[in-house]
Design a protein around this nucleic acid. Structure first.
Lengths: 341, 341
DNA sequence: CTGTTAGCGCCTTCAC
DNA sequence: GTGAAGGCGCTAACAG
């Protein structure tokens, strides 16, 4: 633009070191054939000038940046944050760098476009590979490594990491059923994600297994946020015969539901039991501890990186779809009810 | 590497559309002088081929990427998260894109290096400007716009956003003093940050104003984390005469302190009053609600973006150092004590 | 309106 | 061991 002094380039380094550009490039990339003497002189100039090579230029030339891209829908959702942390942990250990793109309002109309845009922006250009978390689109057009965490319902094209949603949800229902609950509400999440669908299906199947007829009114679908959790719970509470328990497909919905229940003058777990899914941090605070299913979100991020790095290095993948374990965490939002015959 | 088909470039588009590369570039950048006919033909080819321009190449050539960089130390600290959210909100409205770099273990030895590395990596190369949150270094070598949120103690070179830490901390102390507390402990934060230093100074000054002699043993310095909050509180509790209140320089330390207090068999606020700083989300849950000072972290991020964009657009800055308001939030972790004469 | 010509900053042959 | 030349994908003059 107008920045006269601009940033200093490889050429400035070359000039002040009295060598050619290519020599500087060599020391930059730790090539073998540079005399120790020259090497040190150049290094000295580099630090003196505070030179850093331009990521843009480098990645353009050498198809290898050592950075991994991460596209997340939102920074508000704890799920994403936890995944990011896991990704981060892996990145550090594997000595890659991480660039996160977060695509604005997760509910925005143009979200699919932005997702695609950012994948193409990062992938192959500035990043060697990209991880996408809970995408709204089924597929991406990219020729570079891509791994999806909690994939879209119809997504099979790319390797993905997903929790054992079905098993986890079954164990939640089992727990509730074991406590004597028979009329159980369900608050679902984004119906475009495999995770949400599988949890819902598990809810239905558990009921069927227990010979409890399905009441469609008991199923309310939100979008995994606290707000819709609240709304869904309101609807469920307004039913002629209230359920004795609610299974929320994630903790944020569960927290919203608890709010709604309290707001209605009821108490958890005295009047209604609540179980969530995710085991986010807040879960241990809310209402004396939210009973939930841990899905080890951090590990999902970690594993996603492992897979991606394998892809980048052209190594074979163990599995195309990696399933992560889940575990019931019993706290204080569920209680047994006496079963009436 | 080996990707034979590689990604498709502007030249592929040009070739299949039967025009020159520059024409494609023109439609890409919505230049005026392209015939509607050509424009549409090229657009068609672009979508057909699924072409996306390489960020790397573009940014290299045109010193303008429309992306803003954000360098945060950590994703574990709520402070950072809140700032990010604010940044995000601003970014959306201003129609920029956001690339976040998060520098691994915030306690790592090489953190200063990584900070600098990422600033140079992003700034001027792939980002038009960068925001750095709670840096460990005083300065950065960059010729492009940079704004700091909660700057390092000695940092004055770059524009910055900071809370009215002194005023906020004074009001916390005022509140405690007003409740009759005379022996007040202090848990400090990272001594390299202006925010931490100012809160500590306010603690000392308040005491002086109230004619209460300073007891150095009552001051313990941590690093703004829950863990050190716990440790610092332990030390304070082990004192011969225990304080009746503790002012923790941020909420995470305060939460750690509460844990330590509970662990020691004492209760908050019955035995000891606690006040924090930040008003993070968890604050409203912990111990029935943590009394704290809100520093509107989200707004700090928002304002930082505004400043940065002004810088990018070469507009004058209102102030070099923007001070954000703070506000006392009274909840349930402080109580009045009877003053003995 | 559109093609041609120069590079941006860097890396990579290929000579010397 | 080191320099010169060429080109990555793209944009910005300059011609026509």
């Amino acid at each position: 633009m107008k920045n006269a002094k601009a940033s200093i380039t490889i050429r400035d380094v070359a000039k002040t070191a009295g060598v050619s550009v290519s020599t500087v490039s060599r020391v930059l990339n730790d090539k073998d054939d540079v005399s120790v003497e020259t090497y040190e002189r150049v290094q000295k100039v580099i630090t003196e000038l505070g030179y850093t090579s331009s990521l843009a230029a480098k990645s353009m030339r050498s198809r290898k940046t050592n950075v991994i891209g991460l596209v997340v829908p939102d920074l508000k959702q704890t799920f994403c944050l936890k995944v990011i942390k896991g990704v981060h942990r892996a990145i550090e250990q594997l000595d890659y760098d991480l660039l996160v793109y977060t695509g604005g309002n997760s509910l925005a109309q143009d979200r699919p476009l932005r997702e695609q845009k950012y994948v193409s922006l990062l992938n192959g250009s500035i990043a060697d590979g990209t991880i996408v978390v809970t995408p709204t689109v089924e597929t991406f057009s990219t020729d570079y490594p891509l791994v999806i965490v909690d994939p879209h319902l119809d997504s099979t094209e790319f390797p993905a990491v997903i929790a054992t949603n079905r098993i986890g949800a079954m164990s939640a229902m089992e727990y509730l059923l074991g406590l004597g609950h028979r009329r159980i509400g369900f608050i679902g999440g984004r119906p475009d994600l495999q995770s949400a669908i599988r949890r819902l299906q598990a809810y239905k199947d558990s009921l069927a297994q227990a010979n409890i007829p399905l009441d469609p009114d008991l199923i309310q679908i939100g979008d995994f946020t606290q707000k819709t959790g609240y709304r869904c719970a309101e609807k469920i509470l307004a039913l002629p015969t209230r359920p004795t328990a609610i299974f929320a497909a994630n903790d944020e919905s569960a927290i919203g539901a608890i709010e709604a229940i309290n707001h209605a003058g009821l108490k958890v777990p005295e009047d209604i039991s609540i179980i969530g899914f995710d085991n986010i941090e807040e879960a241990s605070f809310v209402n004396g501890g939210l009973t939930t299913i841990d899905q080890f979100m951090g590990d999902m991020g970690y594993v996603a990186v492992e897979m991606l790095v394998n892809l980048i290095q052209n190594k074979p993948l163990e599995t195309h779809l990696k399933r992560m374990p889940t575990k019931l965490i019993v706290r204080n939002t569920c209680r047994a009810i006496k079963v009436e015959v």
